[in-house]
Nucleic acid binder design. Structure first.
Length: 187
DNA sequence: GGAATGATGTACT
DNA sequence: GTACATCATTCCG
């Protein structure tokens, strides 16, 4: 699946739907199926952190495709992205929601809830559930404890596309992708 | 140095 | 539906 990440974010985002994102090994392993993503483009996308060039915060967004970009938002939440494209370009796919598959008890403990639907149905929730830390920013996904494995769409599943959420700029771009009617999509 | 601003989540009305 | 917690980063002067 590594080669996939060298394509553009707009191509990678829908292709990640159905793939398995996991964190940790052994008894602490948690995993979920990706059901919602958003693309952030390398050029002409003022909503992207990379829009004004590389800074200390977004440096890992300019690594080669297949690295993680983890950043803190609103002073309290972490968001996890998969960097895409060639090194130096600056594009990524935000993972917005997962359908929990493994480590449900660990996730519930980290999140402090008993609701399975509330575990990973949002970018901040899934980083907390999986135990992703700010130190994971810039790690190579194929080599570290955070991994993405290929997955497939289930029979009858359809990909939906629409405007991104929470962005105040470029709101007209339809760069959010999700699995239609999936109960674990955010909102 | 100071002010504004988030790729959010939760609680409350 | 609205309010707000909470702070690193960024931008402006």
């Amino acid at each position: 699946m590594d080669g996939l990440f060298l394509a553009g974010a707009e191509q990678v985002a829908p292709q990640l739907l159905g793939a398995i994102l996991s964190c940790g090994d052994g008894p602490t392993r948690c995993a979920g199926r990706i059901v919602e993503t958003e693309a952030y483009l390398p050029r002409g996308d003022p909503a992207s952190h990379a829009f004004r060039g590389a800074t200390a915060r977004n440096a890992s967004m300019f690594l080669a495709g297949g690295h993680a970009y983890v950043y803190r938002i609103y002073g309290m939440h972490l968001c996890f992205n998969v960097v895409t494209g060639e090194e130096g370009v600056g594009e990524a796919v935000l993972i917005r929601a997962l359908e929990p598959l493994e480590g449900l008890e660990q996730m519930a403990q980290r999140r402090g809830t008993r609701s399975t639907r509330a575990l990973c149905s949002g970018p901040g929730k899934l980083t907390q559930s999986l135990g992703i830390e700010h130190e994971d920013d810039g790690v190579l996904l194929s080599a570290g404890h955070i991994r993405i494995a290929p997955g497939a769409l289930r029979p009858g599943e359809r990909i939906a596309q629409g405007p991104r959420i929470g962005v105040s700029k470029a709101a007209e771009l339809e760069l959010r992708f999700w699995l239609e009617d999936n109960a674990f999509v955010s909102r």
